[in-house]
Design a protein around this nucleic acid. Structure first.
Lengths: 197, 197
DNA sequence: CCTTTTCGGATACGAATGTATTCTAAAGGC
DNA sequence: GCCTTTAGAATACATTCGTATCCGAAAAGG
C-alpha cells in the first residue's frame, strides 16, 4: 500500500550532499535548506529522513568513517607492515575533493567536541579505538622487525596519529598538498624504522 | 573636546571576550551580541570598534598569534636548542583555558581557510612564515649538533609542525590532555635526536 | 478501482543573526 | 560654562535559521 523507497540509500544520498557542501563551502554553509538543494530535494524531504540537523551531521560523520575504512580495506596489502602503514596514512590525506570533505568534517566535529561534552565522548571513543588499533598494528610490526622496538608501541601510535592529523591539516590550506607527501613519508619512516641501519 | 578612550586596548578587551567564548562554547557561539555581553558592553559598542564580524575574527586571530609569540619570548632560553624547541612545543599545547581558546580559534580559521580563498592566503602566509622560522631553527640546531643532519631541515620542520598540530588537536578532546605531553616529547626527540647515541 | 500508507513538497513561525541607524550622555578645548 | 566630538547604548530591519505543520501525489495490496 505504501510508496516504498530505499530509506538507507536515501539517507546516504542526503549525507553525501552535505559532504559536498562541506568540501566546497565549509561547515557553516550547511543548513537544512542548502543540503536539500544540493541533494535536489525539498527541505521537507531532508526532515523526513533526519529529524534534526544534529542527526544529519552525526550520520555524515559515521558515513565518513565508514568510507575511510572501506578505502583502507581495498588497499594493496602487499609488502611489510611499515610500508603498508605508510600507504594507509597517505590514503587518509586530503588529496582530492572526497577526502578533503572527510578531513574537514572530522575537523569540524573535533572542534565541536572540544566544547560539547556529549560530542566529546563520541569523538574520544572513536579516537581511542583508532589509537588502540594503531597500537596493535605497531606492536605486530615491531615483532616482525620492521618497526623499532626500543619505544612503547602506544607512544609510537600516538606520534603516528599526530603526524597524520598534522599533515592532513596542513594540506588543507597548502598551495600544493601533494608536495607534502614525501615529507610525510620521510617523517613516518624516520620515526618508526629500527636503528643501526 | 571629544571623549577619549584607549581604542587599541578596547579592541583587545573585546577580542579577549571573543576568545573566552570560543574556549567555553565554541566558535558557533560567537555572535556580535554574545561577544558584547561577555565583554560587558552593548552590541553597539562592539560595532563601534569592529565594523564587521570578520574584522573582529581577524583581529582575534592576530592577537592569538601575538600572545603565543609573547609567551615564547618570555620562555626560559637556557639549554641546547633541542631542549628549547621541546619547551616551545609544550608551551603551544592547549593545557589551560587560554591556550585551548588559541588552538580552537586557529583550528576554526584553518577550517574556514580551507574553503575561502581570501582566508586561505592569510593562513598560508602565516604557516609558511612559521615553517621558515622553524626550518632556520632546525638548521641552527643541526650545526650545533643537537639535531640529526642526515635529513633536510625543512622536512624535519614540517614534521615538527605536524606533530605539534596533531598533538594539540588530540589534546582538545582527550580526557587528560597533560598525559600526552611525555608522548609528544618522546616523539619529537626521537625524530630529531642524532643517531648512534 | 479503490483505499491506505508513505513520500516529499509547501508553508508557517519564532528565534537569532549581521548590520544600519538613531539617540543621549559625557568629556575636554575654547 | 558652553559646544563640539565621540562613546556606546538602543532600536530597527531584513535574512536566515531549525523545526512544526499541513497538504497533495504516488504507489502497492485488496
Amino acid at each position: 500500500m505504501p510508496k516504498i523507497v530505499d530509506r538507507a540509500e536515501r539517507r546516504r544520498d542526503i549525507a553525501s550532499a552535505l559532504l559536498r557542501i562541506v568540501a566546497r563551502e565549509g561547515v557553516e554553509a550547511v543548513s537544512v535548506r542548502s543540503v536539500a538543494t544540493e541533494a535536489g530535494v525539498s527541505a521537507g524531504a531532508v526532515q523526513k529522513y533526519f529529524s534534526t540537523k544534529e542527526d544529519l551531521f552525526r550520520f555524515a560523520l559515521d558515513m565518513t568513517s565508514e568510507l575511510l575504512e572501506q578505502r583502507w580495506n581495498t588497499l594493496d596489502q602487499s609488502g611489510n607492515l611499515l610500508d603498508l602503514l605508510v600507504r594507509l596514512l597517505i590514503e587518509a590525506m586530503p588529496l582530492d575533493e572526497q577526502r578533503r570533505a572527510e578531513v574537514i568534517v572530522i575537523n569540524a566535529f573535533t572542534a565541536r567536541a572540544a566544547v560539547l561534552p556529549s560530542w566529546a565522548e563520541f569523538i574520544r571513543t572513536g579516537y581511542d579505538d583508532l589509537q588502540k588499533i594503531t597500537t596493535e598494528y605497531v606492536e605486530k610490526a615491531q615483532t616482525e622487525g620492521h618497526v623499532r622496538d626500543d619505544l612503547a608501541a602506544s607512544d609510537l601510535a600516538d606520534a603516528v596519529l599526530a603526524l597524520s592529523d598534522g599533515y592532513a591539516n596542513r594540506m588543507l590550506t597548502a598551495a600544493d598538498p601533494a608536495a607534502l607527501v614525501p615529507s610525510l613519508e620521510t617523517s613516518v619512516r624516520t620515526l618508526l624504522t629500527p636503528m643501526q641501519r
